[in-house]
Simulated scan of single mutants.
Amino acid sequence: MRTAVRLAALAGRRLAGALATLLAGSFVLFAAAEVLPGDAAAAALGGSASPADVARLHAELGLDRPLPVRYADWIGSALSGDLGHSLVDRRPVSQIIAGPLADTLLLAGVCAALTVVLALAIGLAAGLRPGSLLDRILSGTSVALVSVPQFVTAGLLTLVLASWLGVLPAVSLVPFGEPLLAHPEALVLPVTALTLFSAAWAGRLVRAAVADAAATPHVEAARLAGLAPARVVLRHLLPTAAGPCAQVFGWLTGTLVGGTAVVEQVFNYPGLSNELVAAVEHHDAAVLEGIGLLMAAAVVTGLLLADLLTAAADPRTRTAT
């Protein structure tokens, strides 16, 4: 009972902090989007529009009001689920980004699931025998994968698997109106490019957590007591390493949503990055702000989840916070 109360109190404090962080970030995002070069009203009316027409559309869209007033209206509507309307084609932002958001979440979700499995396998294999040949091979490979920019990895995968071998499509195009899952081959290259980086990065952190847990006195005592290796790992080592691992995977879950942009562009994947690029090109601040807010919320949610998972796995964090 006391543990549940402490967890609930911690969750309340962390949630309040996450909301404050998201609000602060949303204001920075809104202000940054407003100072982008160009004019959405002029872009919507075309190059032949007169200054009077542009000024009239500014007033109609409320762009002539002070920035704090417009931000207050925008964030109030966003918190109620209304992300506003595009300044260019007047469609609801939620309607514009609904399909691409689903495809980005699909990509991020598949990558997250694969990353958790691979990172645990890499971390356990390397961390249980630090300094061994297997550890050196896995650690070296992980460092190499993390050091290479994602667009380079994506380009190499395209060159080998699409151009040379011809076993996969070079771009993730699907027939209009058909769901992405109806063409799973379009997911393979983007998922592989993202997973190679994220699994290598997470695997390094899991390896460190496993190695630290393996050196703790109670794990060493269990090993010296003659317990089976599998029992030592499952009953003693993994609970000790669960806190740091939860932090890694919680953080990864949030950042993958925003981290798909580069890979989506390389493979022309039909995700949020295409709408984001289009919004910048057309100076459509409403769409840019809506996508940015969703990505910021994903990151903050991931960090909040990481904190709560860490607290649930490690009692020391509950008493220290």
Results as ranks from 00 to 15, higher is better:
Leu196Ser: 00
Leu161Gln: 03
Glu264Ala: 01
Phe27Asn: 08
Ser77Thr: 05
Leu308Phe: 01
Gly109Val: 07
Asn274Leu: 14
Val263Ser: 09
Pro92Asn: 03
Leu36Glu: 11
Ala242Leu: 08
Leu134Asn: 06
Val167His: 03
Gly302Asp: 14
Val152Phe: 15
Phe27Ile: 08
Val210Tyr: 07
Ala246Leu: 11
Arg2Ile: 06
Leu272Gln: 01
Ser94Lys: 00
Asp82Val: 06
Leu45Ala: 11
Asn268Phe: 02
Leu23Trp: 04
Asp284His: 01
Leu45Trp: 08
Ala121His: 03
Ala286Met: 15
Leu173Arg: 12
Gly166Trp: 04
Trp164Asn: 09
Tyr71Gly: 06
Ala144Pro: 08
Leu288Glu: 09
His282Lys: 12
Ala214Phe: 04
Gly62Tyr: 14
Asp89Asn: 14
Thr260Ala: 13
Leu10Thr: 09
Thr141Met: 12
Cys245Met: 15
Ala102Val: 12
Val69Glu: 13
Ala208Pro: 11
Ser147Met: 04
Leu305Ala: 15
Val299Asn: 02
Pro66Phe: 03
Ala162Trp: 06
Gly258Ser: 05
Ala202Trp: 00
Pro184Asn: 07
Arg207Gly: 08
Val110Asp: 06
Ala59Gly: 14
Ala199Gln: 05
Arg91His: 14
Arg14Gln: 15
Thr141Leu: 15
Gly99Trp: 02
Ser80Arg: 15
Ala186Phe: 02
Thr319Cys: 00
Ala230Asn: 03
Arg136His: 12
Leu276Thr: 14
Ala214Leu: 08
Ala52Arg: 12
Ala186His: 03
Ala24Tyr: 03
Leu165Asp: 12
Leu308Ile: 00
Asp212Thr: 00
Leu29Asn: 04
Arg223Lys: 02
Asp212Val: 01
Leu294His: 01
Gly76Ala: 09
Leu36Asn: 11
Ala246Glu: 10
Pro68Leu: 01
Ala98Ile: 03
Asp314Val: 05
Gly302Pro: 13
Ser94His: 00
Leu168Phe: 10
Ala298Asp: 11
Ala209Arg: 04
Val88His: 10
Pro169Val: 08
Ile137Met: 13
Leu124Val: 06
Val174Phe: 10
Gly250Ser: 08
Leu224His: 06
Gly166Ile: 02
